[in-house]
Design a protein around this nucleic acid. Structure first.
Length: 268
DNA sequence: GTGTCATGCGTAT
DNA sequence: TACGCCTGACACG
């Protein structure tokens, strides 16, 4: 379930288990077998995330580039390991720990120049760069004449945002998704980036997207909220806004659904 | 069992 | 704008 917080969290957790360790690599499903053989038995030098991309750097000087897409999933387990799924594209394991990857959009072994090419297509990463990414975000937003709801899905604008975050972040900042990106006032753009950084960092730590503020969460601690109580707009069309009770609206931008509260996020 | 949907994205038309 | 790709969960009959 992949937005940017998932990849950074995976990089952090996988590093604990595999960083600086010599690992076994295979491809039960078969489609990564040739590449798996090349790095099998070598050392994982580091595991990095940028936006929705993850890079497993090996002592061979190459890196496995993974993009989870819509369906990709990592599963970590401790010895004794479960039977690997027949769909496991990649299996990485030591004596104690195993990582299983299924359903990725991309899983390929690349050399550094190829990795550079992947990175060059990405805008500022809110988790990796924090507020240092603000200037690049401002520039990207001000150049686009498209609705901001669409701009936020462009990985060159902000690397790591997906369909849950775009609706939720626009709610948190009171911005209507159909507002032209380049017409947003500067202070709103700043506030938007600050909100993006906070939300993604928080989701990276908890492993969950919880955007609702303590004031709106009522008596329940935010960590105890069910998934359908943690968000303001995502998948809540036809239900009352958690702030004002107005019915949440939905439509499609680029064939992806987007949700907003017409009262809390008025059209300009 | 079949159909639908999902936190993505590249390429063709 | 449409389609292909990747998988799994759930509703329905």
């Amino acid at each position: 379930m992949p937005e940017g917080h998932v990849t950074h969290r995976a990089a952090r957790l996988h590093t604990k288990r595999f960083g600086k360790k010599s690992v076994n690599v295979s491809s039960p499903q078969g489609r990564f077998s040739d590449s798996a053989q090349k790095v099998d038995g070598s050392v994982v030098e580091k595991i990095e995330a940028r936006g929705k991309h993850i890079f497993y750097w090996f002592s061979t000087g190459e890196a496995v580039h993974i993009h989870l897409g819509l369906f990709g999933k990592f599963r970590l387990s401790k010895s004794p390991f479960p039977e690997p799924s027949e769909n496991a594209r990649v299996l990485i394991w030591t004596d104690d720990h195993e990582m299983q990857l299924t359903g990725p959009n991309t899983c390929e072994l690349l050399v550094p120049t190829e990795i550079e090419k992947v990175l060059s297509k990405l805008g500022p990463d809110p988790i990796a760069e924090g507020m240092n990414g603000l200037e690049r975000f401002q520039t990207a937003v001000s150049k686009r004449k498209i609705p901001v709801g669409r701009a936020l899905m462009d990985q060159k604008v902000a690397a790591g945002l997906g369909n849950v975050f775009r609706s939720e972040l626009l709610f948190l900042t009171g911005i209507n998704p159909h507002t032209a990106s380049n017409e947003l006032p500067e202070d709103q753009v700043d506030q938007l980036w600050r909100t993006i950084v906070d939300a993604l960092k928080s989701a990276e730590r908890s492993g969950k997207i919880v955007t609702i503020t303590p004031e709106d969460a009522g008596d329940t601690p935010r960590s105890k909220l069910e998934r359908n109580e943690s968000l303001y707009t995502y998948h809540r069309d036809g239900r009352g806004c958690r702030r004002c009770g107005t019915l949440i609206q939905m439509n499609k931008i680029d064939s992806r659904n987007i949700w907003w509260c017409p009262n809390c996020q008025p059209a300009r």
